[in-house]
């Protein structure tokens, strides 16, 4: 990763999924500043507060689901680098996520390589 410090927001209602994702991100970008959100509403609020370089977002979450959060974040920032990480990777969900403004989709269970590849492509345009 480049010298500039990355800010990354990880949003999943599962504390375990957040930890696993953060571990993989730290391995790829050790200097990154990573923040958490546990539902879609928190993700929208924290995005507006932090303006992160990348946001990883689950779909199935309480309070506000991931797709609604993607729409609201995209309306706020049309250049938002939103990556969906979900086990519900149906064609319909994928289409909904992309139409709402997501840039990429990672199917759970994810591998470290998948996350690293997507993160690099979003940050460096590789």
């Amino acid at each position: 990763m480049g010298a500039e410090k990355l800010t990354i927001l990880v949003c999943d209602d599962s504390i375990l999924a957040r930890k696993q994702l953060k571990d993989v991100i730290y391995a790829t970008a050790p200097d990154a500043e990573i923040f958490d959100a546990a539902n879609g509403q928190e993700a929208v609020d924290k995005y507006k507060e932090l303006n992160p370089d990348v946001i990883f977002l689950d779909i199935v979450m309480p309070v506000k689901d991931g797709i609604t959060a993607v729409k609201e974040i995209s309306e706020y920032d049309e250049d938002a680098e939103i990556i969906i990480v979900s086990s519900t990777g149906t064609q319909t969900q994928l289409k909904n996520a992309i139409e709402a403004g997501a840039r990429d989709f990672i199917q759970k269970p994810f591998s470290a390589t998948q996350v690293e590849k997507v993160l690099r492509s979003r940050i460096q345009g590789e």
Partner: peptide, 22 residues
Amino acid sequence: YVTASLEDFLNLHNGLFSVNMS
């Protein structure tokens, strides 16, 4: 973390089932 693991397993399984059915 234990609770989250069990919920993750169920969510993962149901997610994969929804993909299969779709």
